[in-house]
């Protein structure tokens, strides 16, 4: 089985077999990342461009390491602000980069759907590294990888996603992926941070955090963007934390062996308490490690699509 697509834009469009393939392949790459010499010659001569319109050290670095371990050349483009403020359109920027013979363009952009514009117009393989409020497919893949590694399976697990669901591309990608792989997904947060009609994506909605956590196998805590304050989604961070901060005591409502995840960076004491973030059940750093293996797998599989 191979991945028959040029781009990785979202999880929504992936079927179960494709997700399985990426996760299986990532397992092999995790072995590679455990070697003394962590570099294989697979993508020698290929050029990977990190095109980031939003600051993100973590995701960019993870992609960069993944590409370098596959022996690809990596170029980082950081562009601040949207195309409008620069006077050059996104497409112009991307066409310029393609003209330099980029094989992969990894894009992070504040506007939902920006990677789709590139994918439609360029021959390069486009990987979505987070677009607006839409999706962050490699994050969901690494989350699913981490869950499968810990729990041995995804099917049948209960996963509670807590916090700002409305503005979270991580939540969306995970909702698509986890439900497709057979998990039961719950979301919890204040009403203004739960997107409209999210139930239609196959999740159940909770406003009470303890209820949402009850019997959960996996707790996924989302980062609360501090900019959300003052927009009346919730009155204050203080009250948000009082209602939705994952504390030791609240985590106790989940199953005894529940694992605790966070896509980072963590606001300690706001969405998650320091003891929980650093506790035994936390897999936050494993997520980061697995991110590299998953991104290597994605680069490898897309390079074999025959399109580039």
């Amino acid at each position: 089985m191979e991945l028959k697509r040029k781009d990785l834009l979202d999880i929504k469009g992936l079927d179960q077999e494709e997700i399985q393939l990426i996760l299986d392949t990532a397992e092999s790459f995790k072995e590679v990342t455990g070697r003394e010499i962590k570099k294989v010659p697979t993508l020698r001569g290929k050029t990977v461009v990190n095109l980031f319109f939003e600051p993100s050290t973590r995701t960019r670095t993870s992609f960069e390491i993944a590409a370098k371990r596959l022996s690809a050349d990596v170029i980082n483009f950081s562009v601040s602000g949207s195309s409008v403020s620069k006077g050059e359109t996104l497409l112009d920027t991307a066409r310029n980069i393609e003209a330099m013979r980029a094989d992969f363009i990894i894009i992070r952009h504040p506007a939902s759907g920006a990677p789709h514009i590139l994918a439609r117009n360029l021959r390069s393989s486009v990987i979505n590294a987070g677009d607006g409020l839409h999706e962050h497919p490699t994050q969901a893949l690494l989350d699913m990888f981490t869950i499968r590694e810990r729990k041995g399976k995804i099917e049948g697990l209960t996963v509670a996603i807590i916090g700002d669901i409305a503005h979270s591309r991580v939540a969306r990608s995970n909702i698509y992926g986890l439900t497709r792989m057979g998990a039961r997904v719950r979301v919890a947060g204040p009403p203004a941070l739960i997107p409209a009609e999210v139930e239609t994506l196959g999740v159940s909605v909770f406003y009470d955090m303890e209820e949402a956590l009850s019997g959960a196998d996996v707790i996924m805590v989302l980062r609360i963007q501090l900019e959300r304050q003052g927009k009346n989604y919730f009155p204050t961070l203080r009250e948000f934390a009082r209602l939705y901060c994952l504390t030791q005591e609240r985590a106790g409502h989940a199953k005894g062996d529940a694992m605790i995840m966070h896509p980072g960076p963590v606001n300690r004491g706001i969405e998650i308490s320091p003891e929980v973030a650093d506790g035994l059940s936390s897999v936050i750093l494993e997520q980061v490690t697995n991110g590299v293996a998953v991104r290597m797998a994605v680069l490898y599989l897309l390079s074999g699509s025959g399109e580039i």
């Binding site: 759907g113 607006g132 839409h134 969306r172 997107p195 409209a196 994506l201």
Partner: peptide
């Protein structure tokens, strides 16, 4: 429009 499709696409909705 605010609804299922805006949620799926991650676009801000107008109710």
């Amino acid at each position: 429009n605010e609804g299922r499709v805006s949620t799926e696409l991650g676009l801000r909705g107008i109710p």
